[in-house]
């Protein structure tokens, strides 16, 4: 049995603040966020990049935090669900729309969904239904059937949502 590798210090800018922790080199970004920084809003759904629950923004681009080592993003900027709201106690326009359209039930996939939709709206302020479904196609939700998430994105982009 190999001895565990020596810990390394990793610094990542998380939600605008440099954060540092001493971790095993094999620590994934999602474990770094959850276990070492206590940012448990980012969830683990499958550990192999298929469900999207662990999505975060890396330098503004959505990535799967379960498929990256913390070491790989040393010095880079990461935004998690905790960093999406404009201010403490407030919700972003997108978060508000999720609430309005009932786009979440158990809330487990929600942080990843928000990251995917946030990214979509940054690239495409008025997406069509097809574009929304494509954008969240890499995020699994077992509760909603997705339509209310589609509706939320439409609401957030100032478009009328579909029927209930």
């Amino acid at each position: 049995m190999l001895a565990p590798p020596s810990p390394v210090t990793v610094e990542i800018i998380v939600n605008g603040t440099p954060r540092r922790a001493c971790v095993e080199p094999r620590t994934t970004l999602v474990d770094f966020l959850r276990e070492h920084l206590g940012l448990t809003g980012t969830h683990i759904g499958c550990e192999h990049g298929i469900c999207g629950a662990c999505s975060v923004l890396l330098e503004g681009e959505p990535v799967r935090a379960c498929c990256l080592f913390a070491l790989q993003v040393e010095g880079l900027s990461v935004t998690t669900v905790e960093g999406l709201a404009p201010a403490r106690g407030e919700l972003s326009r997108l978060q508000n729309a999720f609430c309005e359209a009932h786009a979440l039930q158990c809330g487990y996939c929600t942080p990843g969904m928000l990251i995917a939709c946030h990214d979509l709206l940054a690239r495409n302020p008025r997406p069509s239904e097809e574009e929304i479904r494509e954008a969240i196609g890499g995020n699994l939700c077992r509760c909603t059937g997705y339509q209310q998430i589609v509706d939320a994105v439409k609401l957030a982009s100032g478009q009328e949502a579909a029927h209930g």
């Binding site: 276990e35 448990t40 669900v81 905790e82 609430c99 487990y108 929600t110």
Partner: peptide, 21 residues
Amino acid sequence: LRRIEDPRLLKGGGRYTDDIA
């Protein structure tokens, strides 16, 4: 009515079993 539980879940404030340290 909009759900009472939503704001905390939307801000990453849900507390699931694995979140308990």
